[in-house]
Design a binder for these strands. Structure first.
Length: 306
DNA sequence: AAGACGAAAGTGGTTGA
DNA sequence: TCAACAACTTTCGTCTT
C-alpha cells in the first residue's frame, strides 16, 4: 500500500488546484507550483482510453455535458443582440427549439431527464468551482447510469449529486459528501444518505474503479481554509506520511486523518486551532479529529522514544 | 467560559457464515 | 438473511486552560 516516494519534481498527478487561492500546489511538499490564476481552465488530462481518443480526435471534441453530446446544430445561438441569454426559461426554450428542429419529434422522458440532469450538473459544478474534467466525467456517468435505468425511481438531484461525487472521486478531487449536498438549493437538496447510497450504486453497477484519495489532498484544502501558512501544510503532510507507514490510514476517512494532521501541525507551530474549527472545515466531527489525533500522537511519540 | 477529553449509545454500511 | 463488525456521529459529563 505504501509506496516508496523519491524526491522527484512533482509529477502531474501530485499537483492539486486550490480554488481559494488560485494556485496549484504539490501534495508532496505543499509547495506552490504556479501562482497565476487558473480560473475554470479545462484540465485536459485523459483518464480513460476513450477519453483520450475523444480528445485527440480532429475537430471539436464531443462533450458529455452538453445535450446530444454537443453536436447540435445551433439555432439562433446563445447570443441575442450581442448579449448572452441569461434567464433559465430562455435557455430552456433555446434547447427545446434546437431539439425540436433537429429531431422532428418530442424528446423521450429519458432524454428530458438527462438534459435536466446536465443543467443541474452545470450549476452545481459552477458553484463548487470544480474542474472541467470533473464536469465531463459527471455528465458521462449520468448518461451511462440513465441509459442503464439506474436513475429510474430515484430523485434526479440525489443522482446528480452522486455522479458529481463519483466524478470527483474518480479524478482524485478532494471533496466531501457534505460539500456536495450543501451545493444544492435547500429546497431540493438531496440527503447525504441518499447521495451515498446512489454513489455506491454507481460504483457497483457501472463497475467504477475509484482510486483511494490521498489524505494529503485534504490536508491542503483544510490548511488553506484555515489560513494556515505553508510550513504548517508541509508539516501536516509529513505527519500523514509517517502515519501511513504505520498503516493507520487503511479504512479510515482520509479527511478525518488530514484534519487531525493539520490540527497537530498547527499546534506544533504554535498556531492553535480548535478541534471544532478544524473538524468543521474538514467535514467531520470533533470526536473523529480527536480520535485520529490521539492515534497519530501515539505513533509519533513511539517513534521519538525509539 | 471555552476547549479538550473520553465514555456510551446510535447510525448506516460491509462482510461472512 | 442475519449477526458480528468497523468507522463515524451524537450526546453528555468531566477535567483543563
Amino acid at each position: 500500500m505504501e509506496s516508496h516516494e523519491e524526491k522527484t519534481p512533482c509529477p502531474p498527478e501530485k499537483i492539486v488546484y486550490d480554488p481559494e487561492r488560485g494556485v496549484r500546489v504539490c501534495i508532496e511538499t505543499g509547495e506552490v507550483i504556479e501562482s497565476q490564476v487558473i480560473g475554470d481552465e479545462a484540465e485536459w488530462r485523459a483518464y480513460t482510453p476513450d477519453e483520450k481518443a475523444r480528445r485527440t480526435r480532429v475537430g471539436s471534441p464531443l462533450s458529455f455535458s452538453k445535450p446530444n453530446l454537443g453536436v447540435d446544430v445551433y439555432v439562433g445561438g446563445p447570443k441575442e443582440g450581442g448579449r448572452r441569454i441569461r434567464g433559465l426559461s430562455h435557455r430552456l426554450e433555446s434547447v427545446r427549439v434546437q431539439r425540436g428542429l433537429r429531431m422532428g419529434r418530442a424528446m423521450t422522458s429519458l432524454e428530458k431527464n438527462i438534459n435536466q440532469a446536465l443543467r443541474i450538473i452545470e450549476e452545481v459544478v459552477a458553484r463548487l468551482e470544480l474542474p472541467y474534467s470533473v464536469k465531463e466525467e459527471a455528465a458521462r456517468l449520468y448518461r451511462e447510469a440513465a441509459n442503464k435505468g439506474l436513475t429510474r425511481g430515484r430523485s434526479i438531484y440525489s443522482m446528480v449529486a452522486a455522479t458529481i461525487y463519483a466524478a470527483c472521486r474518480k479524478n482524485r478531487y478532494p471533496i466531501t459528501l457534505d460539500e456536495i449536498a450543501r451545493a444544492f438549493e435547500t429546497k431540493e437538496a438531496p440527503i447525504k444518505r441518499e447521495i451515498a447510497r446512489n454513489y455506491r450504486l454507481l460504483v457497483r453497477d457501472l463497475n467504477l474503479n475509484i482510486p483511494v484519495i490521498e489524505p494529503e489532498r485534504f490536508v491542503y484544502r483544510i490548511a488553506s481554509a484555515l489560513n494556515l501558512p505553508d510550513n504548517v501544510t508541509v508539516e501536516a503532510i509529513k505527519i500523514v506520511k509517517k502515519v501511513r507507514q504505520r498503516g493507520l490510514t487503511a479504512g479510515k476517512d482520509p479527511s478525518g486523518l488530514a484534519a487531525a494532521a493539520v490540527y497537530l501541525a498547527a499546534l506544533k507551530h504554535g498556531l492553535r486551532k480548535t478541534q471544532k474549527e478544524v473538524a468543521q472545515v474538514a467535514g467531520v466531527t470533533e470526536v473523529t479529529v480527536r480520535n485520529r489525533y490521539k492515534e497519530i500522537d501515539a505513533i509519533l511519540k513511539g517513534e521519538e522514544g525509539g
